[in-house]
Design a protein around this nucleic acid. Structure first.
Lengths: 248, 248
DNA sequence: CTGTTCTTTTGATCTGCATCAAGGATGCCA
DNA sequence: TGGCATCCTTGATGCAGATCAAAAGAACAG
């Protein structure tokens, strides 16, 4: 069915758009050289599955461009997204042979892959890689825990607002701007994918987006292009406290 | 209000009950020696708060005995537990100054603490510590993601069954037995804490526990002592698939 | 043993979101 | 240009779990 085409995309680490954010961020020139020797690029089309949960996984890698999702599925088909992978995010786990989750490209995507075995060996001699990976994993753990609050305790409206504020913030950080005032961005997810992320149905997602639009929290152009006139207002709707203390 | 009593509990690393599971698990004798120099013990009583989210945190550490919870709270009081800390689990994050979550001891608890600064310095020269911490953090990330599925997609009954099966499994692993057949253990949490973990109300928790008891999935003695006559049955109720493939 | 507090159970009712159902918009391919 | 698929919106209805309320154990101090 799916044509798992693998296409080489030669590139120099020096020009790499994720050079200073990915797992290689802290590497010196010589370390980068070693990584360069075991790396290869893979391209995926929107909708293509990178790997299925339970499949043997003999590589790890970084998202270079595009977006992928990490999802878990129960036997009866209920699915929950457990991660949204953006450029520089790491895929796979050193020391594990099988993929723990389904990984699906939701847009055209390019990954910088390393064969797992050589990567693991390299990690032993290259503390900068292990250090960076630890830092990234701790960040992901924080993100997962923040998401647990969203899933466990927020209302549908708050969930949507939380997702929008996260996407807006991430978009701002790519553009190296602060998330304030008016913001414009595109939704990288379908309503169904949003529902899977938020633990809702796609109908509820659609209704709540309409409600936020009706209430002036967001403006919509087409289905995907979003304008947030007031980011603080969005944060309020998300139930997050941005005025949080810190009066030291 | 809370009497944050700090009591010394001198102990030798060689005798430590979490020696081979904690962040120090991979350390050689000399590395252990270095850790030993910067460690100190703190005891907490049941109900005592270890640290509040946002507070300055100048230590990291491991739970030696007892149980603690990691929780997040919204301004209006809604709370979500984001982690259950058992013996050998790590508390705190190297490279971060403030606690991200409330940490509360739910039973009498002893922690082995390291001052953060010296610990961070030690990590640089002691790859075994960083390696083990990475491994533990990856495990926690997996656990958090499994919990996202529970919070986002499972019914109240499945949530309760999931929590019980996790506690049962953990209990089995402490006793070095396989989780099968009949199992007996104590709930380390109040109904309210269970509710905070599962994103439910305590009334719903109580009702579902009664229902599981009525249906013979569990037996109760007092409020806390649980017997699971058939672990596979419990797994089914949790919606987990334990017969999952693996026919290689 | 009695009053107090904390935890838990159980009942009655309400409601937010799921479910079921239909139709609109957009884009692609023949 | 029309057929088809994909994605999205909106309406009607139902139900799982929240909320409100009361009371029953259990632990403990006096």
């Amino acid at each position: 069915m799916l044509d798992e085409e693998t296409k080489a995309v030669p590139r120099d680490c020096g020009d790499c758009p994720i050079r200073h954010r990915a797992v290689c961020a802290r590497c010196e020139a010589d370390e980068l050289e070693s990584l360069d020797q075991i790396k290869y690029y893979r391209s995926f089309e929107a909708g293509q599955t990178v790997i299925w949960a339970g499949d043997k996984m003999d590589f790890v890698g970084s998202v270079v461009s595009g977006i992928a999702t990490l999802t878990q599925t129960m036997e009866d088909g209920r699915t929950q997204m457990v991660g949204l992978l953006l450029p520089s995010d790491f895929v796979g786990r050193p020391g594990r042979d099988e993929a723990a989750y389904d990984v699906v490209a939701t847009s055209d995507m390019v990954m910088c892959c390393f064969r797992k075995k050589p990567f693991e060996e390299l990690m032993v001699h290259t503390p900068h890689i292990a250090q960076r990976l630890l830092e990234m994993t701790l960040d992901e753990l924080d993100a997962a825990r923040e998401w647990m609050l969203v899933l466990g305790r927020k209302t549908a409206r708050e969930k949507i607002a939380s997702l929008l504020s996260i996407i807006a913030r991430r978009d701002a950080s790519l553009k190296l701007t602060k998330p304030t005032g008016s913001m414009v961005f595109d939704l990288p997810l379908t309503r169904e994918a949003m529902a899977d992320y938020l633990g809702l149905t796609l109908e509820t997602v659609s209704r709540q987006i309409s409600a936020l639009k009706r209430d002036g929290v967001i403006q919509l152009e087409g289905k995907r292009h979003i304008t947030v006139p007031d980011f603080d207002r969005l944060m309020e709707e998300a139930g997050d406290d941005n005025d949080g203390g810190m009066l030291a």
